[in-house]
Each structure stands twice: as structure tokens, then as C-alpha cells.
Computed example of a mutant assay.
Amino acid sequence: MSYQFSVADVGFLAAAAAEIAEVDRLPLTGASYLADVRTARGLLGDRAGAVLETVLLRRRAVSKVEDPGRWLFTDAALQQATPLLVARHRAARFAGRDVHDVTCSVGVDLAELAAVAGRCLGSDLDPVRLAMAAHNCPGVALARADALRPVSRGTAVFADPGRRDAAGRRRWRPADFAPPLDALTAAYPGRDLAVKCAPGIDLADVPWADEVEIVSLDGQVREACLWRGGLATARRRATVLRTEGPQWTITDGEPDDCPVRAPGAWIVDPDGAVVRAGLVRHYAARHRLGQLDERIAYLTGDTPPPGIRAFRVLEHGHYTEKALRAALRRLGIGRLEILVRGLDVDPNRLRPRLRLSGTAEASVVLTRVGRTPTAFLCRAERTS
């Protein structure tokens, strides 16, 4: 169970740089943890728990904030905190606006909003998180307030409702969020609004959203952001962020004239943000690709988009396990990546039945072309 911070702990930690640095010298690994806890207790007495938890949380926070060594977190707040690149991308859409983060927690999103906004206010009901936000975001105006009882006027609003219960289990129904999503949006009528949600949210539950943006980071879909009012600029948007490399976005305002065509030299599996946003055809049209089947998200063409992991087709044909096993044996494939869409195939069950042997490596894309189960033996390559 994670340590439960008090407001007094926050006050101590804000002035305890030397004590925290001393504990941070300990390895705190599985093998050393009990001995390290005894050492920390010998140094700090009753304060050891707060300092140990802070050191461990800061070590986990490297993808969430710049300079995590100066931040204070709770475990639950860090779990829900937005990765830095995602928070920075979202904040950029508020540039120059007055903005109120009505669920500011410890201030991860608030810090990025404050860097670009005209004026910025953060509020939260939790006094511990609010005290941490005051430490983490010096100079930003803060208020203890219920997100459902507005304390600002005329600002754009950002919210990140809690999506875990007291036991840490995920909540999936918007009515179970804290605060409930419908009540949150109703509390700010006529206000420009952005709400961070899990990417699997059912869009039928959020008819008020003027734009749904799905965001991925380094190939993993991280969030849906629901935009309302003047903050919305499209109906659907996919944004692909990378720690290193190009970042880009695509919307439903772009053309979607994409043919169904015969397999080309490459298979392209669009980023998950593109698929979840329903923008596969728009992405294909942008890069002059075609669909293998109009109901399946795999694309094909003779020139793949730059900067992605694509699949160069070595051979393809009607899929049966027997035929695939024979082709893998003939090519000496001992390591195989299995991708499946449109077929009832479980890669984890299929793999042992293929009896792989050899030293070569390949990828196989199993899908349906029309009514025909089809296997594409490929070599995965990073395009330039």
C-alpha cells in the first residue's frame, strides 16, 4: 500500500532537500529495500516513510515532468499524470488563453498550461495535492474548490477527472468518474472546455464533444482529449507524438479518397491513434496508399510513409497453418512477429503450432482480403 501523505508531510518535504538527497543515495532495489528502509528510519525517524515514497515516486516520474527531482507526488496522482510530451502538446492549444485547470492535482498539466497561457488558475479539493501543486508550480494561482462549483469566469477550462476508485481499480463509465463527466460539462455552460479521458471512451457517452482527439506517444495510444467550443478545430483528430523523431497530426478535414487495391510492395499498419480516431482512409489518402480490404485497417502501397515501421512484403498467399508453416521452414524463420486483423487467430496459440526453427527473423501479417484469409510474409523496416 502506498504512503498516505499529510499536509504536514508536504511542508516538511518542501524544505527537506538534504534529507531527500541522502535517501536518494540508497539503491532501494528489491534486494536492498529492507536494509535501506532501516537506514532511512535511522536517519529520519517518523519522516522516513514520506521521504522514501518521494524518492521512489521521483524515480518513476522521469517521463512525466522535467526535473522530477524537485517535484512532489502522491502515488495515485503520478499514475494519472499525463506524460510530459502529451501534456505539452495539449497545453499548446491553450496558448495565450486564460485557463482554469479545475482538477489540477499536483500540477503536472497545470505547469505546462501556465507556461503558455495568458493567466492560469489551478484548483482541487484534495488539500494534500493542492499543497504539492503550490510547491511544484510556484507563482501559479491556486484555490481549494470543487470542480462542479465554478470559481472562475470567462476562462477556458481543462479537466482530468479521476478514473480509479479507492482500491485503485479503473472506472470505465463516465458517470463513475470523479467528478462525473456529464455533471462536469454541465457545470461550465458556454465555456470552452477540454477534458482528458482514457482512449477507449465510448463516444456515444460524450455527445457534447465538438472534437475528439486521440493521442499516441512512441507508438502507444495514451489518451483521448475531448474539446468543446472555440478550442475545437475538427470533429476527429489523431496526433502522433514521439520522444525522438517527427510528430504529426491528421484530421477528418483532410481527403479520404483511398482505393481498395491489390497488395503492393509494403504493408502499413497505421498508428493506433489513427485507427481509434477512425482516420485510416484519411491517412492512406495523405500517403497515397490503398486498403487491402475496405473494412480492415491494414494499408498497402509501393512507397511507405517516412519515419515509420513498415513491412516489406517478401511473399503472400492464401493463409492456412500448413502453408504458413511450410513457408517459414523453407525460409529458415526462427523468430516471428505475428500481426492479425480480420481473422479469428490467436498469435499466442498459433506460435507453438508453427514449430519455428532457424536463424532468420520475419513478420507475418494475417488478414482477410475480401473473403480470402491471406498471409503476408514480411521484413519489418524503419523507413527514412
Rank of each mutant, 00 (worst) to 15 (best):
304 P>W: 09
323 A>N: 04
172 W>K: 15
331 L>H: 05
337 E>A: 02
292 L>T: 03
335 R>W: 05
177 F>A: 11
201 I>A: 02
178 A>M: 08
182 D>C: 00
41 R>I: 07
235 R>I: 00
2 S>Q: 03
261 R>T: 04
52 L>Q: 12
103 T>Y: 15
178 A>H: 02
127 P>G: 13
245 G>I: 04
133 A>C: 01
363 S>H: 04
229 G>P: 01
88 R>P: 04
60 R>V: 08
324 L>C: 03
359 T>V: 01
341 R>K: 12
327 A>H: 05
308 I>F: 03
73 F>H: 12
46 D>E: 12
18 A>E: 15
126 D>R: 14
132 M>I: 12
309 R>W: 06
144 R>N: 08
208 W>K: 00
159 A>Q: 07
346 D>A: 13
205 D>V: 08
33 Y>A: 15
153 R>G: 08
365 V>I: 09
214 I>D: 08
274 V>E: 08
354 L>D: 00
143 A>S: 08
184 L>T: 12
28 L>R: 05
47 R>H: 12
155 T>G: 10
219 G>M: 02
211 E>N: 07
52 L>K: 13
67 D>C: 05
56 L>K: 12
100 H>N: 09
357 S>L: 11
112 E>I: 11
147 A>V: 14
96 G>D: 15
96 G>Q: 15
175 A>T: 13
325 R>W: 04
366 L>F: 10
16 A>C: 00
6 S>I: 02
320 T>S: 05
26 L>K: 03
113 L>S: 14
274 V>A: 03
363 S>Q: 00
23 V>R: 12
176 D>R: 14
306 P>V: 10
378 C>W: 02
170 R>I: 10
47 R>E: 10
133 A>S: 00
96 G>W: 15
60 R>Q: 15
104 C>T: 15
55 V>Y: 15
384 S>C: 04
32 S>Q: 06
126 D>G: 15
64 K>A: 11
332 G>H: 04
35 A>R: 10
167 A>Y: 07
239 T>Y: 01
219 G>S: 02
233 T>G: 15
185 T>S: 09
324 L>I: 02
187 A>S: 09
89 H>F: 14
358 G>I: 04
180 P>N: 04
378 C>N: 04
229 G>T: 07
325 R>K: 07
378 C>H: 03
222 R>P: 01
7 V>S: 14
357 S>T: 13
71 W>V: 07
15 A>E: 08
33 Y>G: 11
373 P>Q: 06
251 T>D: 10
173 R>L: 12
240 V>P: 05
203 L>Q: 11
37 V>G: 03
353 R>E: 07
89 H>L: 01
75 D>M: 11
162 G>I: 03
197 C>K: 09
351 R>P: 07
343 L>D: 02
379 R>E: 02
375 A>L: 06
129 R>V: 11
323 A>L: 00
83 P>I: 10
29 T>E: 10
146 D>S: 08
260 V>P: 03
191 R>E: 05
102 V>E: 11
131 A>F: 09
275 V>P: 01
98 D>N: 14
190 G>F: 13
28 L>A: 00
304 P>Y: 09
90 R>P: 00
270 P>V: 10
85 L>E: 03
295 R>F: 09
276 R>H: 05
